[in-house]
């Protein structure tokens, strides 16, 4: 075991890690930050997406020791200190962009990165960017609407067409 320290959601945090400890397990078990989810064993679902040094990555496919010293933002660090939801989180609520909520942390982290890179994406760009995020519930339409709304673009405020 080795002590690994990262800046997580703005604070320096430490926990032990084996060579094989994945970033997602270090966050969930080491720091008890369980908002980041594990939805698959195959690096395909995106439920575990966090921002590593500002970029979205799948925390289930990064080794904790490898990124010792990095800066990480998880879903717990997205809302304001007083609990005010971020624009993307609020839009997911307003447009019913979730049902069971399992994929939502990854969706919000990915969508937040998209809007940072591309503040006014087209619907096609939203769908393309979120290709690595799998949702078993919503059918994606309301997720896409939420992201469009979060980018300040007009979206019909109906739950589903």
């Amino acid at each position: 075991m080795t002590k690994v320290t990262m800046t997580v959601n703005g604070k320096s945090r430490s926990a032990e890690a084996e060579g094989r400890t994945l970033l997602v397990d270090w966050l969930r078990e080491g720091l008890r930050l369980t908002g980041t989810h594990v939805g698959c064993d195959t690096t395909q679902c995106g439920a575990c997406i966090v921002h590593l040094n500002g970029e979205p990555v799948k925390a289930c496919s990064v080794l904790a020791q490898e990124v010792d010293g990095a800066e990480v933002t998880t879903i717990e660090g997205v809302a304001g200190a007083d609990g005010t939801l971020s624009t993307v989180q609020q839009a997911f609520q307003d447009y019913h962009g979730l049902q069971c909520g399992f994929c939502t942390p990854g969706m919000v982290m990915a969508a937040t990165s998209l809007l940072k890179e591309n503040p006014r994406p087209s619907e096609a760009e939203v769908r393309h960017y979120l290709e690595g995020n799998i949702c078993r519930c919503t059918g994606y339409h309301n997720i896409v609407k939420a992201v469009m709304a979060a980018s300040g673009q007009d979206v019909p405020a109906v739950a589903a067409e």
Binding site: G46, I49, E55, P56, V57, K58, S113, Y129, G132
Partner: peptide, 9 residues
């Protein structure tokens, strides 16, 4: 290739 998160690593 893959998706944005895969491409970042």
């Amino acid at each position: 290739i893959g998706d944005p998160a895969v491409r970042n690593r």
